[in-house]
Amino acid sequence: MDGFWDFFWFLIWIFLFMAYLIVLFQILTDLFRDVDLSGWWKAVWVFFLIFVPMLTALIYLIARGRGMAQRSMSAAKEAKSATDDYIKSVATPASPADQIASAKKLLDEGTITPEEFASLKAKALA
C-alpha cells in the first residue's frame, strides 16, 4: 500500500514541476518578446527568476500577466499574417500571358511540341 502512495505523490510532484517549467518558459518567452522592456529590466527579471524562481514567477504573472496575453496574441497574428502573405505569393496563379510566354519558351527550347503548345495556350486562354 505504501508503494502506491509513494508513486501517487511522485506523479503529483512531477506534474507540479512540469507546470512550473511551462510557466517559467512562458515568462522567458514573454520577456524576450516584449520590445518595450529594456535589456536591463529583462536581465533583472531573469536574475530573479534564477535565484528566487517561485516568488519571481508569481510577481511576474501578477504584474505583467495581462500584457503577456496581448503580446502572445500579437505575435500569433503577425505569424499568421506572414504565413498568409507567403501562401498568397506562392499560390497566386500566373496570368494567361505569363502561362503562354512560359509555354512559348518551352516550345522554343524544343521541350514541347507545337501541338502541346497549342493545348497549353488554349488552356491558358480558357
Rank of each mutant, 00 (worst) to 15 (best):
Phe4Met: 08
Phe7His: 09
Phe8His: 06
Phe8Arg: 07
Trp9Cys: 04
Phe10Gly: 10
Ile12Glu: 04
Trp13His: 08
Phe17Tyr: 10
Ala19Thr: 06
Ala19Pro: 00
Ala19Asn: 10
Val23Glu: 08
Val23Arg: 14
Val23Thr: 10
Leu24Trp: 09
Leu28Ser: 04
Leu28Cys: 05
Thr29Trp: 12
Asp30His: 13
Asp30Phe: 07
Asp30Trp: 02
Phe32Ile: 01
Phe32Val: 02
Arg33Asp: 02
Ser38Met: 07
Trp40Gln: 10
Trp40His: 10
Trp41Ser: 07
Val44Ala: 09
Trp45Lys: 00
Trp45Ala: 02
Val46Gln: 01
Val46Ala: 08
Val46Arg: 03
Phe48Lys: 03
Leu49Arg: 04
Ile50Asn: 00
Phe51Gln: 01
Phe51Trp: 11
Val52Thr: 13
Met54Phe: 14
Met54Tyr: 08
Thr56Ala: 08
Leu58Cys: 08
Ile59Gly: 02
Tyr60Ser: 01
Leu61Gln: 05
Leu61Trp: 02
Leu61Cys: 07
Ile62Pro: 00
Ile62Gln: 06
Gly65Tyr: 06
Gly65Thr: 05
Arg66Ile: 08
Gly67Arg: 15
Gly67Ser: 15
Gly67Gln: 13
Ala69Ser: 10
Ala69Leu: 15
Gln70Trp: 11
Gln70Phe: 11
Arg71Tyr: 07
Arg71Asp: 05
Arg71Met: 11
Arg71Thr: 03
Ser72Gly: 15
Ser74Cys: 09
Lys77Trp: 08
Lys77Gln: 14
Glu78Asn: 11
Ala79Ser: 11
Ala79Gly: 04
Lys80Leu: 15
Ser81Ala: 13
Ala82Trp: 08
Thr83His: 11
Thr83Ser: 13
Asp84Leu: 15
Asp84Phe: 08
Asp85Ala: 15
Asp85Lys: 14
Tyr86Lys: 11
Ile87Thr: 05
Ala91Thr: 10
Thr92Lys: 15
Thr92Ala: 12
Thr92Trp: 06
Thr92Pro: 00
Thr92Ile: 04
Ala94Cys: 03
Ala94Pro: 00
Ala94Lys: 13
Pro96Asn: 03
Asp98Met: 12
Gln99Asn: 09
Ile100Leu: 07
Ile100Thr: 00
Ala101Gly: 04
Ser102Tyr: 09
Lys104Ile: 05
Lys105Met: 13
Lys105Ala: 15
Lys105Trp: 03
Leu106Gly: 03
Asp108Ser: 13
Asp108Ala: 15
Asp108Asn: 12
Gly110Ala: 07
Thr111Ser: 10
Thr111Leu: 13
Ile112Trp: 02
Pro114Tyr: 05
Pro114Asp: 01
Pro114His: 06
Phe117Ser: 01
Lys121Thr: 06
Ala122Lys: 14
Ala122Cys: 07
Ala122Phe: 09
Ala122Pro: 01
Ala124Phe: 09
Leu125Lys: 13
Leu125Val: 05
Leu125Trp: 06
Ala126Leu: 11
